[in-house]
Structures are given as structure tokens and as C-alpha cells.
């Protein structure tokens, strides 16, 4: 097991180096020189010179890359946002918790609904419920999430006044946020009305963002259950005369959930992409709407730092999923 983890961690190194190289060269490929790209269009000659000095941009490119690695990884200096003039790193600390909360809520929505749906569809294989679930899940994949978000918001917030339409929290509430994870903050302080309020703000964005994972998880669960159902050990269990419920739970679902768990890792990337669109619609102050604004403001330091950070998160989530998968399923370690 340890060997597997170590191997997996070692595999991470080339990927991290690759990602940093990709972003490093991306910035250099942007219109204008890197200093100008990072300074925005306000760059005066004097400023460009100072910037080149600071980040070693007049040195050979290989040396520049190592300087970039050092300032990013060691000094955690991602530069300063062109729009807000604040440190990119301190903005990430502010925005990232919002996106994590949203992504987790979306994933919970998708898992809690998707697994039972997929399971029942497989159990009713070929029948109406199965067909409806399949078509429904295809439809779920076919709707652009920003379109779904706009429609949901219009109906549930504007038309029927059931849920809030913007932001993370009721602005008239006077609460402190020690961690910036609002759900966590509310639980720590035992402030249940705030918790309720924060959850209400999460519902619509989470449904919109969770629509595609929901469809995918439903389909994967269904396919996995269909696969497992005919395995020898399931037949054996049935033949032994175990009650159907026990077989369903112990033999079918447990094994069928293995592929589903890897999906969760792969879906993280989709959630982070989708957050850009969802957060824009719901004016949700997370990484997504922040990066979207950065595109408009040509805020290259934010784009550079933000995308790098999200890529790292994505890579690490997949690592954790892989490792936990290997723990659950010993066969994988030796493949």
C-alpha cells in the first residue's frame, strides 16, 4: 500500500512541473511582453523595467522559470491583482472557501440523488423508470449549466420568492467569518439561523452546478449495478438464500460504488469549470466569478495564480481519490 502511495506521489511531480511550465509559457504567449501582460495596459516603461528586475524577466528563460517557481512555491507570491491591487494569494484565501462550499454542496446533491436513481434504474432495467432516468440524465448533460441556472433562478427566486437569488448570505445578518467557510463558521459558532440562511443561498447554485455530475453519477451507478448484478459472487449469494435486501446492499451496491467513487474525483474538474458559469449567474463571490471578472479586466496575475491554484486542487483531489480507491479495492494496487 505504502509503495502505491509513494509511486502515486512521485507521479505527481512531473504533472506539477508540467502544469507550472504550461502556465509559465502561457503568460509568455499572451499579447505583449510578459511584464506588460502581467502589469496590464497601464504598463509604463519605468514600471515594466522595475517589474522585469523584480521577477528577473531580463534573465535567460530557464532561469526565469526557476525564479517563477521560487516566487510561486516558496514565497507564495502570486503577484497583485490588476483590478483590486490586492495580493492574488490573499484573494484566493477569501474566494476559495466559497467555491469549495458550492462544489461540495453540488456534489452532495449529485451523489444523494444520483446513486439511488441509478440503482433503481438498474433494478428496473428496460422498464419505464429506467428509460425515463436514462433520457433524463442525457437531458441533464445536454443543458448548458448557465442556461439551467438562469431558468432556476428566475423560477425559484424571482417568480416564486422561495429562495434567495444572489450572494452567499443575507447581508443584513451581522456575523463574523473566522474561516470564510460560512457553513463551517455557522456550525462552529452554533448560529443556526445563519446556517439556515447560508444553506438557502447554496441550494440553487448547487443544483445548477450539480446537474451534470448528477446525470453522470446516475448513469455510472446504473451501468455498474448492471455489471455487478451478474457476477458470480452475487449469484452465489442469491443461491445461498440470503435475503434480497442483504444481497443488494452487501454485494451489489458496495461493489458498484467503486467506479462511482472515482467519478467524484474526475468530476471535480467539471465542478471547477462549471463554477465559473454558475457563480456568474448567482453573483456568488467565489473563485469562478472572480476568474470571470479577471478575463474581462485582463487581470493576468489573477488568471495565472487562480488557474494554477485550481489545477493544483484538481490534481490533489484526484490523488486522494486514487489513494482511497486503492485502499478500498486492493486489486488496483498491483495493476
Amino acid at each position: 500500500m505504502l509503495r502505491y502511495i509513494v509511486r502515486r506521489l512521485l507521479l505527481l511531480i512531473p504533472i506539477l512541473i508540467g502544469v507550472s511550465l504550461l502556465i509559465f509559457f502561457w503568460i509568455r504567449a499572451l499579447p505583449g511582453s510578459p511584464a506588460e501582460a502581467l502589469l496590464g495596459e497601464r504598463a509604463t516603461p519605468a514600471l515594466v523595467q522595475a517589474y522585469r528586475q523584480k521577477y528577473g524577466l531580463n534573465k535567460p528563460i530557464v532561469q526565469q522559470y526557476f525564479t517563477y517557481l521560487k516566487t510561486t512555491a516558496v514565497d507564495r507570491d502570486l503577484g497583485v491583482s490588476v483590478a483590486s491591487h490586492r495580493q492574488v494569494w490573499s484573494e484566493i484565501r477569501l474566494k476559495f472557501p466559497a467555491t469549495i462550499e458550492l462544489a461540495v454542496a453540488a456534489m452532495i446533491f449529485a451523489v444523494v440523488l444520483g446513486i439511488p436513481l441509478g440503482f433503481f434504474a438498474a433494478k428496473h432495467h428496460g422498464r419505464l423508470f429506467d428509460q425515463l432516468t436514462l433520457v433524463g440524465s442525457l437531458l441533464g448533460i445536454s443543458i448548458p449549466i448557465f442556461f439551467l441556472a438562469i431558468i432556476l433562478k428566475y423560477l425559484f427566486a424571482v417568480r416564486w420568492h422561495l429562495l434567495p437569488s444572489v450572494g452567499r448570505i443575507d447581508v443584513t445578518a451581522n456575523v463574523k467569518h473566522p474561516t470564510n467557510f460560512y457553513v463551517l463558521d455557522a456550525i462552529i459558532t452554533g448560529d443556526w439561523s445563519t446556517l439556515w440562511d447560508v444553506l438557502k443561498h447554496l441550494v440553487l447554485p448547487a443544483i445548477a452546478l450539480g446537474s451534470i455530475p448528477l446525470a453522470v453519477i446516475t448513469r455510472i451507478t446504473r451501468a455498474a449495478v448492471l455489471d455487478v448484478q451478474n457476477e458470480d459472487y452475487v449469484r452465489t449469494a442469491r443461491a445461498k438464500g440470503l435475503p434480497p435486501l442483504t444481497v443488494d446492499r452487501r454485494h451489489i451496491l458496495r461493489n458498484a460504488l467503486l467506479p462511482v467513487s472515482t467519478i467524484i474525483g474526475l468530476q471535480t474538474g467539471l465542478l471547477l469549470s462549471g463554477a465559473v458559469l454558475t457563480e456568474t449567474v448567482f453573483a456568488f463571490p467565489g473563485m469562478g466569478s472572480w476568474l470571470r471578472d479577471a478575463i474581462f479586466n485582463r487581470d493576468y496575475p489573477v488568471l495565472q495564480g487562480g488557474i494554477l491554484f485550481l489545477a493544483l486542487v484538481f490534481v490533489f483531489v484526484n490523488l486522494i481519490v486514487d489513494i482511497s480507491y486503492a485502499i478500498i479495492n486492493p486489486r488496483i494496487r498491483y495493476s
Binding site: S165, V166, D170, V281, A283
Partner: peptide, 22 residues
């Protein structure tokens, strides 16, 4: 007694905040 000024960048989102009482 209290004045709260909040930023909502999108025109539609701002209108909707008014419609929902936010």
C-alpha cells in the same frame, strides 16, 4: 439606523435582488 451597500455587478441579478427583497 443602518445602511448596507452591496455590490451586484450583473444588471439582471441586481433587478432580481430587488424583486426578491434582497
Amino acid at each position: 439606523k443602518t445602511l448596507i451597500i452591496r455590490p451586484i455587478a450583473n444588471n439582471s441579478a441586481r433587478l432580481q435582488a430587488l424583486q426578491t427583497g434582497e
